[in-house]
Amino acid sequence: MQTAGGVSACLPIHSDMDLVWVRQHVRQAAAQLGFGLVEQTKLVTAASELARNTLVHGGGGQMECAPVQGRSPGLRLTFSDEGPGIADLDQALSDGFTSGGGLGLGLGGARRLVHEFAIDSRPGAGTSVMVTVWKSGPPRPREER
């Protein structure tokens, strides 16, 4: 079992420079866990959307990155901020809804790019989004002794 050194991290999100760090860290972590190129690209894109939400709508926050072990190795990213929160989650998750002048694809689009998506937000109490992606493909043959 390979160790997950370099995968776990907590990165601040306070500028568009930080978005670059988030993307680079998520790509490296996904590569280290053996994710394929398309899986990596989807996950990094989802992370970029969510990190930008944290920055633009939440007024900055952080991303926690941690490996998880299910039936296959996975990666869990948690974006949290202490911003104004989201009053209507269903509306925020629907395509085309935007409050920040974007395309309105951020939350809904990110949800389609990951396997598990959980969001917790209340007005005035900040927002936390947790996404998990499992490495796909047939499990590697491994001799059990």
């Binding site: 989807k42 395309l103 689009g109």
Partner: peptide, 14 residues
């Protein structure tokens, strides 16, 4: 455009 980027963009809805 890289194939992985095209796949991701379509799933993103863009």
């Amino acid at each position: 455009m890289r194939p992985a980027v095209a796949i991701t963009l379509v799933e993103l809805g863009l």
